[in-house]
Amino acid sequence: MMSRVYSFLIIAGILCCFINGKDPMLLLAEGADSSVRLMLSLAGSYLLWTGLFNIAKRSGLVEKLALLMRRPLALLMPSIGEASGPVSLNLAANFLGLGNAATPFGLEAMRILSKESDGTATREICMFLALNASAIELLPTGVIAVRTAAGSADPYSIVLPTFLSSVVASISAILVCKAFEGAYQ
């Protein structure tokens, strides 16, 4: 699936460039270039949060959180094991709108979850990715900023419907994953 999605983006992208008279090499170079800039802007917060995470880990707090969250998370991801610590931190960071902190926790969660995998996404990995995709967020800061800049009378009016719809999306992510789990067994 991964390689097919990727090949589709590249082949369809280049063909559409020919049709629309655009330069595909320029766009490819621009994308690769933006990865370096994104990496540089991400690296600092990444170092910060992995450093703080290690303090929490060594002092035993991550283990405590993992024990606390293992039962509720095991309903969704039965063999979550020690990944329940970083998974809960990732969901909490997303919830608080700390996107920069969510990524290192998400990668740590994926590192632990992928140990059980032979290159195939396990049921735990699929559930984690699907939950991440619906991203329950208390305050969608980016959208509020754009609404304020566009001169909205009430930029915050969308907070409640956004929150509720992301809850509905998360519930549907769980149900869809459970349905697929059954179908794939």
């Binding site: 390689s3 994926m110 990715l129």
Partner: peptide, 22 residues
């Protein structure tokens, strides 16, 4: 792709479908 590519997950099974549907 970023999460899966970094940890060598090649077959994503229903991860995309679940994410798109939700």
């Amino acid at each position: 792709p970023l999460y899966c590519g970094t940890f060598g997950i090649k077959r994503t099974r229903y991860a995309f479908a679940a994410a798109i549907i939700s």
